[in-house]
Amino acid sequence: MTAPLLDVHNLVVRYKPRGLFAAAAKPAVDRVSLSLPAGSTLGVVGESGSGKSSLLRAVLRLVPVESGSITLDGQDWLAAHGPALRRARHSIGFVAQNPFLSLSPRLTIAQILAEPLLARGDKPGAAMQDRIAVLLSRCGLPPDFLPRRARELSGGQAQRVAIARALALSPRLLVLDEPTSALDVSVQAQILNLLMDLKADFGLSMLFVTHNLKVVAHIADQLMVMRQGSVVESGATERIMSAAEQLYTQELMGFGRRAQKSAPTS
């Protein structure tokens, strides 16, 4: 049994209370632990206010952590600062919910994909252009997209660019924040297929954060259900989907079509 790629232990994230006399805020993430083995996918599911986004932002080092530890690939991930943190960031790829907001509106796709490579210190040139074209085609887009800008793309195409950018530095961990929530069902299927392919090809580990249990249940090996900052239930996907212990998890599975699940689609 190898050590997990990402290990979060008793993590507490608490935002500063607003105002001088405000009482101390409740923690947004309250003693959450998780462990993500290399090459596997963990789905973190929760509704608004569940703390799933704060957990994700803590893993990305975008919000300060009050207590607890995060270990990435055996290293103390919270200890990195300054230039060391910047270098360490290259081992995590990040895909946000809305690709149109997360891709710089004034840069071309080629420039957007060059950003992480330049940040690592790669020299611009033919080799970099090749790498960019390969990345893009690996994510299902032909090279004639390179000179375009994000706003000229459809939602699914833009999200493919965002995924290509996240993969540019060959990270071992991909962090996904509701990557299909802004997309149509048919496009969502394309993106989920792409993620499954990439995971198989590159042995990626994924932390997939979403409010939609059905979406993440399809591709996650493990699930973790959060509510009000705490973990409600976690375990293997099959186990949770077939026999959720918590009523809340069952609620999240939705209503409606369960009744008709017995009748398969033709």
């Binding site: 299927a189 989920l192 249940a217 399809h218 591709i219 079509r257 689609t265």
Partner: peptide
């Protein structure tokens, strides 16, 4: 309509490719 329903994540077994609709 058939393709739209088949593209739903719970229309395919866990971990299997979904029947995405190609094109625009």
């Amino acid at each position: 309509a058939a393709a739209l329903l088949a593209a739903l994540p719970d229309a395919a077994p866990h971990g299997q490719r979904l029947a995405a609709i190609d094109g625009q």
